[in-house]
Write a protein that binds this DNA or RNA. Structure first.
Lengths: 119, 119
DNA sequence: ACTATTGTACTAAGCACTTAATACAATAGT
DNA sequence: ACTATTGTATTAAGTGCTTAGTACAATAGT
């Protein structure tokens, strides 16, 4: 993986998405080990605490598990992964419709926009 | 209108959306006058500068025009309003697809999600 | 038992942004 | 010409968040 960050958004948030995507797409398979905080921090050229914050968040979401001194691993609960994925997707959809409403576009029209952009 | 703000987001941003929606939906018709900075600030119970910032942004977008000491008015250029609306809508759509990709969902699947939520 | 490696907690510095206070500039309207 | 009202500029205070530095705690592995 290549760790590239934009300046306009917090690093830890981008770390979360980066790792999240890794898990949700299967790049980090269920049950597989995750490098240590310091190792990841070194790799991403980021302060260990920043990486720690990202990992803690992923853990709170249930994607990762910690084994104290034996490092972290991806959860083996594939249903959880799938479930979280659905939650996040659902949130995305709602945010989209809300955003469209904020500029005076109804749901019906919003759906048309989706289609238009795809074509 | 009722001015209600959440704490988790900057007030000026919410002001922008509020007013933006007013214009884009036609509540503030093209060419119509807009209350003064201070009047709006008083109405929304907000510091004048905060309102000023929001109005300045809307002006930068082209939605509003300023007449120096004769207050502001909504632009008469309806094409501009429509154009801006399209730009914002387009941005919303892109943000949606990007967000979905970030959690490992392709465009095809994203479209399915749109349909599912609607049903 | 030791030790290196793991995750974690605490603190502080830096930073950017939001909001507010205040003063200024210009002019419509009388 | 005057004056109240308009938008604007400048400055500062507050605030929260991000990041970093440092020290601590626990244990797997030898």
């Amino acid at each position: 993986m290549d760790w590239i960050f934009r300046k306009d958004r917090p690093i830890y948030a981008q770390l979360i998405e980066h790792l999240q995507r890794g898990v949700l797409t299967g790049a980090y398979p269920p049950g597989s080990a995750v490098p240590s905080v310091r190792a990841l921090a070194l790799e991403a050229e980021v302060n260990p605490n920043t990486m720690q914050k990202a990992l803690a968040e992923l853990e709170a979401q249930g994607l990762l598990r910690t084994h104290r001194t034996a490092g972290r691993s991806v959860t083996e609960d594939e249903e959880m992964i799938g479930g979280l994925k659905e939650n996040l997707a659902s949130a995305q959809v709602e945010a989209f419709f809300d955003g469209m409403k904020a500029i005076g576009i109804s749901e019906d029209e919003a759906v048309k926009w989706i289609r238009e952009v795809r074509n």
